[in-house]
Simulated assay, not measured.
Amino acid sequence: MTHDIWGELFRFDNYAELLVLVRNSIIAGAVLGLTGGLIGVFVMARDMAFAVHAISELSFAGAAAGLLFGVGVVEGSLVGSLAAALLIGLLGSRARDRNSIIAVLMPFGLGLGILCLALYSGRAANKFGLLTGQIVAVDNPRLTALLIICSIVIVGLLLVWRPLMFISIDPQVAEARGVPRLAVSILFMVLLGLAVAVSVQIVGSLLVLSILVTPAAAALRVSASPVVVPLLSTLFAVVSTVGGIMLALGGSVPISPYVTTLSFLIYLICRLLGWFQNRRQRSRRPELLGATT
């Protein structure tokens, strides 16, 4: 029984031949990891981890509606993500308002998506893939769309990096210095909505946090540098997505458990490293105090 389960998870027969078939997925995973790693830094800085989940629920609803009405999964996912992002950005300027809006959007998006899937009479794999991702779902048109959207997100982040970081760290001072807080925040929410929409195509709506939140959270456990954290976050996200795809290729289960497991293991390792760093600093503090006296 154990051997059968292990074989379902990891089976590497004819692996080289299968690897060619998921070339698009590997490229998509690497680009998605780069995008998620960068935008995840601001998600953590602005304390918006659950906003990502709310946007993913509306993205799922939009994708399910696109599947039901035949307008396209990618198009529907984009509409749902952007609608949720704009609602949160416009109405949730304060943390209390944002939390209540998220609590309203999450069940609504999930319920609407389930309704659309229940009415859809097509392949069951398409329904399941919206929730958990599909490793072979990235054809050439979808890869092109993903590359374009991720490029828009990355370029947009680079253009507003400094004012966005300023607002994320100290919004009152940034606004007093003349930084257009609302405009920059709305732009960030649009970029976040785009990132969530493309992430849903790979790992599914239920597990999008593993790309857009966990890598950045792991990076913040081992560094506070404004340069090191984005680099580590990007590295962790790319390793999780590409590594998850490579492992899923040898099994017969969806891609998402591999991606989420790798992301979680990286977080645990970083948390342990951060704990050792803090313990070492505390142990050295009495020595430094003794030296100064």
Rank of each mutant, 00 (worst) to 15 (best):
W6H: 13
R11K: 10
A16F: 14
A16E: 09
L18I: 01
L19D: 07
I26Q: 07
A28F: 12
V31S: 10
L32M: 12
T35F: 13
V41N: 02
A49V: 13
A49W: 00
V52P: 01
H53V: 04
E57T: 07
A63P: 00
A65K: 04
F69A: 03
G70S: 08
E75N: 08
E75A: 11
S77A: 15
G80R: 02
S81K: 04
A84I: 08
L87V: 15
G92L: 06
R94M: 07
A95K: 14
D97Y: 08
R98C: 09
R98L: 14
V104K: 02
F108N: 03
L110S: 02
L117H: 03
L117E: 08
A118R: 14
L119V: 08
Y120A: 03
S121R: 15
R123H: 13
A124L: 11
K127I: 10
F128Y: 12
T132A: 15
T132L: 12
G133E: 02
G133R: 00
G133H: 02
V136Q: 15
P141V: 05
R142T: 10
L146I: 11
V155E: 05
L159A: 09
R162T: 09
M165C: 04
A174F: 07
E175V: 00
L187I: 12
L187S: 13
L192Y: 03
L194T: 02
A195E: 06
V200G: 04
Q201L: 13
I202K: 01
V208N: 00
L209T: 01
L209G: 02
I211D: 00
L212Y: 03
A216F: 06
A217V: 01
A219S: 13
L220H: 15
A224K: 12
V228N: 05
V229C: 09
P230D: 14
V239H: 09
L247I: 08
V253C: 05
T261L: 09
F264R: 00
L265K: 04
Y267T: 00
W275P: 01
F276I: 03
F276C: 07
Q277L: 09
Q277H: 02
Q281T: 04
E287H: 13
L288Q: 14
A291T: 08
T292L: 15
T293I: 15
